[in-house]
Amino acid sequence: MKRRSKLLILMDILNIIQREDGKAKPTHIMYGANLSHSSLKEYLSLLLSNDFIEEVKKNDRTFYKLTPKGYDHINELRKVKRLTEAFGIPM
């Protein structure tokens, strides 16, 4: 099985959040993206620092929500993924 690149992992995380109506729990992201807890924290902080997602607290629970910038980024990533797949040059 091939290793996913950092970019593909970030894309998986953004996809999972979008699939759950733009707001997901960290455990859902962790299992959905098949990540360890420490890796999840690392990737989430990267996405937070780039304003692709934001942290939302509701009833003592933490959620991660896609920002408009995050929505734009995931769309761009999908186009790039389709293009690179078509050419057979991996991301």
């Binding site: 690149s5 970019l7 761009e76 990533l77 186009k79 790039v80 293009l83 690179t84 050419f87 040059i89 991996p90 991301m91």
Partner: peptide, 18 residues
């Protein structure tokens, strides 16, 4: 143009060559 976009996002040399 799309190759450039891919390179800007991935920073991969293969996309720069594309």
């Amino acid at each position: 143009y799309f190759g450039f976009k891919a390179h800007r996002i991935t920073s991969e040399k293969s996309h720069l060559f594309l």
